[in-house]
Design a protein around this nucleic acid. Sequence first.
DNA 1: GCAGAAGTTGAAGCGAGCTTGAAGTCACGT
DNA 2: ACGTGACTTCAAGCTCGCTTCAACTTCTGC
Lengths: 144, 144
Amino acid sequence: MTELTIGELSERSGIATSAIRYYEVRGLVTSRRTPGNQRRYERPMLRRLSFIRTAQGVGLSLEEIEQALAGLPSGRTPTKADWTRLSRGWRTRLDERIARLERLRDTLDSCIGCGCLSLRRCTLSNPGDVLAPRGPGAVILDGR
Amino acid sequence: MTELTIGELSERSGIATSAIRYYEVRGLVTSRRTPGNQRRYERPMLRRLSFIRTAQGVGLSLEEIEQALAGLPSGRTPTKADWTRLSRGWRTRLDERIARLERLRDTLDSCIGCGCLSLRRCTLSNPGDVLAPRGPGAVILDGR
DNA sequence: GCAGAAGTTGAAGCGAGCTTGAAGTCACGT
DNA sequence: ACGTGACTTCAAGCTCGCTTCAACTTCTGC
């Protein structure tokens, strides 16, 4: 069996069939149909699904994922250039997110024994509100 | 002005007042009230808010954040032990997420020129479906 | 060839995380 | 003391990402 039914795909990927159909409506996955109108998937779809799940797991929305995958040409085989372009965009995004996470982690470390996340005053924190000149919303922690 | 109104807090944090009130209902932030029933915030609340936003930005739910912050004793000043305990739990979570992101990024890199995220066969991918014996849903990419 | 499991569509429902609106109160400058 | 703008609560509404249901069809094994 070189092709998978939606049930098999679901079992193998751990994603509910309803979710897979939803992804199809959204355009994140595609399938061919049997003469009896049932979906059939090629095996690489598993990888695409796990990519989607992983991307979701780190906080990317379906729309972002959709757009990234839509960057692949549907008419022709993706060239190396297509992949490089796509990959570069993602790398930037992912590197940003990784940096944000590391900042969060490090802030947490530096907060031990300080209490700045509780309601008490933080001795380390920005006593004169020095970020104010950088505009509204300027906060050390937040990378956005 | 040592205390902030909800409007000032909103402007400084970049978070809508409606969201701040919502967080208060959920128990993520607290405020004291003026005689006229208006909210007043101490400056460290800014830090707490930015912490919440950063944590959200990397995919944590309000409930997870809520629980982490609830790990802080409300009655007494948090001790160093409280912080260490809280921090350790978060570190683990964050390290996991960072690892997941890095895996995603590296997979992407290894996919350049391969096409495994498109519908074409991936020459690098798991030709004999060797992960099948590890149970349903076993996929290299997905850390969960 | 028939039962039962698995598949199909479309519409409705759900929880999370807010936003919006209505109707009213408070705070502050002149 | 008054007007304007910021604040209050409560309820309803919205988007995202699915899940559930109903009514029906197709595929598989005996």
